[in-house]
């Protein structure tokens, strides 16, 4: 603290609290809506304080038949689909990026820079700008409605490759020299020295990529047509549409709550890794 200004400090706290309220208000409203029964949720004004039907709604949402008038997979199945998708994307991206960064940093081979630039280009081609042709490729490979179709097209990663390249470049040369003197081959060096050294970077990246994978929306929307393959994040849109006819907001908001809970838990629980991952990947 540079100077004593109790008034300004008090004001800072007030503004921060207002900021927190602004940011948390939508999530609070969601939570409140998920704790009332459907009768209370059609009477304006809607409640601002939680009710008593939380577990009832949770049970109905997780294992019920879904909203009346819609045909959808049970919510627990959609949660599992989302989890599988998020984990496959996160692990897939980390694995292939580690390998290619290792090759680019530690080997001298023809077309090395060509490969590097090819990976770099993926940064400039987000799914949103090439949806139709990518969809056609996946369809012609017969990968629609499968976990592979959901994840593989998304796991190429320039940012992750760059990050591991940065990490490997900071590993002292003596590590490799001494490993070679001890007779370690490339893969031995990779698994026994490089991987343990980049452990925290991998963890930080995992946090970011898990959120990225879990929150995918447009791509699953295109690739899955069978209800058994839908993810939880996707299902919200269908529910909002159904809400025009039968507004069961308690169930919809409970589903929304379940859909955002895992990534929020990851962000709050692994805050330090999350912040590290965020700042590392965007450099």
């Amino acid at each position: 603290m540079i100077e004593q200004r109790p008034l300004l400090t008090a004001m800072s706290h007030i503004i921060m609290v207002l900021g927190v309220i602004l940011v948390a208000f939508p999530i609070w409203i969601t939570f409140v809506a998920a704790t009332h029964d459907d009768i209370r949720m059609v009477q304006a004004p809607l409640p601002l304080l939680p009710g008593e039907h939380f577990f009832e709604n949770l049970d109905k949402t997780l294992f019920g038949v879904g909203l009346s008038g819609t045909e959808s997979a049970p919510v627990w199945l959609m949660l599992l689909n989302s989890l599988a998708m998020a984990l496959m994307i996160a692990f897939g991206k980390i694995a292939i990026s580690l390998l290619s960064a290792f090759a680019i940093v530690y080997f001298k081979f023809p077309f090395r820079m060509g490969f590097f630039w090819m990976i770099f280009i993926t940064l400039m081609l987000p799914v949103e700008v090439r949806i139709l042709p990518t969809f056609e490729v996946v369809a012609s490979l017969g990968m629609l409605n499968s976990y592979w179709g959901l994840t593989v097209p998304l796991i190429a990663s320039a940012t992750a490759t760059f990050m591991f390249r940065q990490v490997f470049l900071t590993v002292p040369d003596e590590m490799l020299e001494s490993a070679r003197i001890d007779g370690a081959g490339p893969m031995r060096f990779f698994f026994d020295i490089l991987l343990p050294l980049s452990r925290t970077n991998i963890a930080a990246l995992f946090v970011i990529l898990f959120i990225y994978g879990w929150n995918q929306y447009l791509w699953p929307l295109l690739v899955t047509t069978e209800t058994d393959m839908t993810t939880i994040v996707m299902s919200i849109k269908q529910m909002l549409e159904a809400a025009e006819q039968s507004p069961q907001w308690n169930i919809i908001m409970m589903t929304a709550l379940l859909a955002m809970l895992p990534p929020i838990v990851v962000v709050i629980g692994m805050q330090k890794l999350f912040v590290q991952g965020l700042t590392e990947t965007d450099k």
């Binding site: 694995a95 292939i96 990026s97 390998l99 290619s100 290792f102 090759a103 680019i104 940093v105 530690y106 080997f107 001298k108 081979f109 023809p110 090395r112 490969f115 090819m118 990976i119 280009i121 993926t122 081609l125 090439r130 990518t134 490729v137 996946v138 593989v152 097209p153 796991i155 190429a156 990663s157 490759t161 490997f168 470049l169 040369d173 490799l176 020299e177 490339p186 893969m187």
Partner: peptide, 27 residues
């Protein structure tokens, strides 16, 4: 590139193969 590195071999091609394959096919 690292000052100290492994000699050229087929291995690096195998290492970049998954990433490059996905990049080519899906990007």
């Amino acid at each position: 590139l690292k000052r100290v590195h492994f000699p050229s071999s087929p291995l690096p091609y195998l290492l970049v193969a998954p990433q490059i394959a996905i990049t080519l096919v899906f990007f």
